[in-house]
Amino acid sequence: MTIASRRFCGPLLALMMGLTTAEADQTDSAVFDLTLKGIYAGTLSVSGAIKGQSYAASGVLKSGGLVALVKKVRYDARSRGSISDGRFRPALYEEDADTGKRQSQSVMEYSSGVPQVKKYNPPRKKKDRGVDPASQGGTLDPLTALYAALRDVPEDQACNLAVYMFDGKRRSQVVLGDPQPKDEGISCPGEYRRLEGFSKKEMKEKSRFPFTMHLEPAGDGMMRVVEVSMDTLYGNGSLKRR
């Protein structure tokens, strides 16, 4: 994931961990408006489908409004793999990003849960601090984590996570605290943490990003994410579901 897309998506990336039983079929589609310091900055669209023990997801982040006049950003990603009772195991992740200044692509395949970077453009430099993919078994790709966090879930699975992610170069973590009642829904305090593979400058500017997810009932005992408030490098931000 590019620096620009991580600044928007990082605090959102999350996953509900589970056991190893079959998952009910499910289809999700959501569009969120992104605001930074109260100013409209773009949209995040995430969709996915679960059928049996397989899943496929796609996501698009793009700048909009006044922000797009200054800097156009677009992040497209696709992922697929297997799932059992909320536990996702990616098999393939593909990403195309454009920061307005640089375009990049990456492809990761997984073998026994270990990511294998098949494509990473622009190529890494020898002095690159990137993490060795062979050491990242059990991690999730950014889109799989994002889809799992934003999809509808049973109430007893909400706000219960502590997962690690790997984007082909960097390792990070998302944790959520105890759920708290809010209006007719649930509020989940959380934090996104940069761990390894980030530059000294990136770690110095900020390594922890607190955020709060707000979920409301979606019917049939399911909960739905309707808003995410977060701390970003650009100031306070939020995602509100349309």
Rank of each mutant, 00 (worst) to 15 (best):
E109M: 10
E109G: 12
Y110L: 05
Y110M: 08
Y110F: 15
Y110R: 06
S111G: 12
S111M: 07
S111Y: 03
S112L: 11
S112E: 12
S112K: 15
G113Y: 13
P115R: 08
P115N: 09
Q116Y: 10
Q116S: 09
Q116N: 13
V117H: 02
V117C: 00
K118M: 14
K118S: 11
Y120D: 09
Y120T: 04
N121K: 07
N121Q: 11
P122M: 10
P123R: 03
P123E: 03
R124P: 05
K125Y: 01
K126S: 12
K127S: 07
R129V: 01
R129F: 00
G130D: 08
V131E: 04
P133I: 02
P133Y: 00
P133W: 02
A134M: 11
A134F: 03
S135I: 01
S135T: 15
Q136F: 04
G137A: 04
G138K: 05
G138F: 00
T139Y: 03
D141G: 00
D141M: 13
P142V: 10
P142N: 07
L143Y: 03
L143S: 09
L143Q: 04
L143P: 08
L143I: 01
L143C: 14
T144C: 12
T144K: 11
A145N: 06
A145D: 08
Y147Q: 04
A149T: 07
A149K: 02
A149E: 07
L150P: 00
L150Y: 03
R151I: 11
D152M: 14
D152L: 12
D152W: 08
D152Y: 05
V153Y: 02
V153N: 01
V153Q: 12
P154K: 13
D156M: 10
D156R: 15
Q157N: 10
A158Y: 00
C159T: 14
C159D: 04
C159F: 05
C159Q: 06
C159W: 01
N160L: 15
N160W: 06
A162I: 04
A162Q: 14
A162R: 15
A162M: 08
A162C: 08
V163G: 02
V163L: 11
V163F: 15
Y164A: 05
Y164H: 06
Y164M: 15
M165T: 15
F166C: 07
F166V: 10
F166P: 08
D167K: 02
D167S: 10
D167L: 12
D167W: 05
G168L: 00
G168H: 03
G168S: 12
G168W: 00
K169A: 13
R170P: 02
R170A: 03
R170S: 00
R171E: 05
R171S: 07
R171D: 02
S172D: 09
Q173I: 07
Q173P: 04
V174S: 09
V175Q: 14
V175A: 14
V175L: 13
V175C: 09
L176H: 01
L176R: 06
L176C: 11
G177E: 10
G177H: 12
G177K: 14
G177W: 01
